[in-house]
Nucleic acid binder design. Structure first.
Lengths: 249, 249
DNA sequence: AGGAATTTGTGCGTATGTATC
DNA sequence: AGATACATACGCACAAATTCC
């Protein structure tokens, strides 16, 4: 495989993602790193495919993934563009890849801060995590920000069978590597249910609304490529600051 | 093209959809008509492709569309199944194809009733409908039901240049044909922004919440294949009865 | 238990149409 | 009008997961 910076595909590993998803990851990082700016045109399909050493069909599949995620816009006869008026998403795969909150004002760079992390016996309201699941879970609570402004609270549950103990730092940053490399799976499908709710009582500054106030609520189920449910999360967001955004094509 | 009922692709026309989308439409109708029931397995790719007289790759692209819409589940080594615990969606293309509300209790057959239809000068809060747009719009207000129970109010705007006048009956039922055949375009991409809002003051029985009460709110922009914005809508839904559902893979 | 058959997932390559520049 | 670039469609080969005998 040729090695023409800034294009360099990660090598295939035992638990590697499919090639077309690695392409999507690579381009996501390129855009996040600023190699391609908002609204900028990417090289033509043929060019990109040659540089990456992949077939055009495979490259197209990777580009389609990013279009569905809203990161790219593709115009026939013109080219492939980084979606403008839309901040690049600096975080990669797993739950962050599917982060769907955007500022009402538009754009917004997503970041997160860990509020709490502990292992608990699985509560009844958390669904069963498929075959082989224990009754022990990790619960991660995070504060979600856009452009540095707190907009949402997040509570994530996943089964403890993958790792007995966790450290906060492992989840603070490049979690997309952690999920795949440490836990040995990657999230292939998610289902979101969006409605309204109340800010949970464990909220604290600097999240906007007070506990008990009305807000938007997202319930999420995440399945690995194996088909097993691997993650369940609830997100409470301030609907005056952010919206859940979905794009279909 | 072979003609083995119940598989019969619509013939290509001047404004025809791409083949892979016609396949998706066909299968959607088959499922809605009850030829395939919830949880049932579809014929293998090879079989389906042969019967329809299309290449396997084209068929796969059509199946992927339905998987993204949540209508089908595909399992490697096993087969393609109608998504169970999920009511078939009887309505086809256009805005209804992308209808994303589901009952909290699960399932639910979507129906709609026209509350009001009129032509108006485009208000400021409605976005511009691209090149060639007039300043005149059609505004359609509908009551949305799941399993016969009212769960949402819908207000749809689109430019009046396609047709000067509309009759209610044209929009009550098979709107998916109306959009493509009468207006000459098909919706290729939509963007939803989901947050919270207040029930509009034009609500009336039998929609659950009173005017001014908190509810879920969906703003939607719809683009045709040409890239032009063709439709803008707002939906207010009772979050105690229904949720906005999104599935990603 | 294990191997064969079936079925979808991934990847490759090509040809043609259509929109844009 | 011509060149460029993405959209669609076709078809093949092999891998991986499942199912069945």
């Amino acid at each position: 495989m040729p090695n023409l910076a800034p294009f360099e595909l990660p090598a295939a590993t035992a638990t590697a993602l499919p090639l077309y998803l690695r392409i999507a990851e690579l381009l996501t990082r390129e855009i996040a790193a600023g190699h391609y700016r908002s609204g900028e045109r990417l090289p033509a399909e043929e060019t990109l495919a040659q540089r990456l050493g992949v077939a055009t069909g495979t490259l197209r599949k990777g580009l389609d993934v990013l279009r569905q995620r809203g990161l790219l816009v593709r115009r026939q006869g013109s080219g492939t563009y980084v979606r403008s008026a839309d901040a690049p998403r600096p975080e990669g795969r797993s739950i962050y890849e599917f982060f769907r909150l955007e500022r009402v004002a538009g754009g917004g760079l997503p970041t997160a801060a860990v509020l709490d992390l502990r292992s608990l016996r699985k509560p009844a309201h958390v669904p069963d995590f498929g075959a082989g699941a224990t009754q022990r879970c990790h619960r991660l609570r995070r504060l979600r920000c856009l452009n540095g402004e707190p907009v949402a609270l997040e509570e994530i549950w996943f089964d403890a069978r993958h790792v007995p103990a966790l450290r906060e730092q492992a989840l603070s940053e490049a979690l997309y590597q952690f999920y795949q490399q440490s836990l040995g799976f990657w999230i292939a499908r998610v289902e979101d249910r969006v409605g309204t709710g109340q800010v949970p009582d464990w909220t604290r500054r600097p999240f906007g609304p007070e506990a008990g106030q009305a807000c938007g609520m997202i319930e999420r189920w995440s399945w690995a490529g194996s088909g097993l449910l691997e993650e369940y999360s609830t997100t409470w967001f301030d609907a005056t600051l952010a919206r859940y955004v979905a794009r279909w094509s």
